[in-house]
């Protein structure tokens, strides 16, 4: 009897040790995943969505390895965890102020965005999307859920490009883009389109 009890407790002890070691591996792996980022890659006419590791982002110059020494962040008005944007939007940071909503947040907005950006691209093209800020845009008392994202393209030939976009949270549609990379070509400028009546 005592032997059985001892065996039982030994098993429990071993199982516990085994569990925590696994969990630690999972936790250490999950720490390597970059939060807020998703990669959409064109693979054989399909778009495949995956997470992305922080080290890949550092390698692709999308984040810095070394954190900035000090960052002074401004306190911007928020409501329900979303930054307020729009003229006089800060008046609505008080939850007591009523608000009408133009749209709703769709849980797959990022997926729809990623797929729509990747679908026309060549196989092997990667589209990395980073959620930067959840936004509540308010115009004349009507609110619209939006997402501020960073969109980064990585082409199979190594070319990269990035910009920011404001996205409709209900359907992943880009409302407008900004902060686009300004490239100066010294030779081999991009070709345009041949005159349709040329031939």
């Amino acid at each position: 009897m005592l032997k059985k009890i001892a065996l039982f407790f030994s098993f429990i002890a071993l199982a516990t040790v085994f569990y925590y070691s696994l969990d630690k591996t999972k936790r250490s792996e999950s720490k390597k995943i970059a939060k807020g980022w998703k990669k959409y890659q064109k693979v054989k006419d399909k778009t495949v969505a995956t997470t992305i590791k922080k080290e890949e982002l550092v390698k692709d110059k999308l984040v810095q390895k070394r954190a900035p020494a000090s960052v002074r962040s401004r306190i911007l008005p928020m409501r329900n965890g979303r930054f307020l944007d729009g003229a006089k939007a800060k008046d609505y940071s008080n939850m007591a102020v009523p608000l009408k909503y133009k749209n709703k947040v769709s849980p797959d907005w990022q997926k729809r965005l990623g797929h729509s950006l990747a679908r026309f691209q060549d196989e092997g093209t990667e589209v990395l999307i980073q959620k930067e800020r959840p936004i509540l845009y308010i115009n004349k008392g009507v609110a619209e859920y939006r997402e501020q994202v960073s969109i980064n393209f990585k082409l199979p030939n190594g070319t990269k490009s990035s910009y920011r976009a404001m996205v409709d949270s209900s359907n992943g549609r880009i409302l407008y883009t900004y902060d686009r990379t300004k490239i100066e070509y010294f030779r081999n400028k991009p070709t345009g389109m041949t005159h349709p009546l040329a031939n």
């Binding site: 960073s150 902060d179 990379t181």
Partner: peptide, 22 residues
């Protein structure tokens, strides 16, 4: 929020660029 980071030899040919988003 971040310093202005410059890559002195970023490996692109016949180009220089400025990325406001990064």
């Amino acid at each position: 929020a971040t310093p202005l980071v410059a890559f002195a030899n970023c490996g692109v040919e016949d180009q220089a660029f400025y990325s406001p988003s990064k």
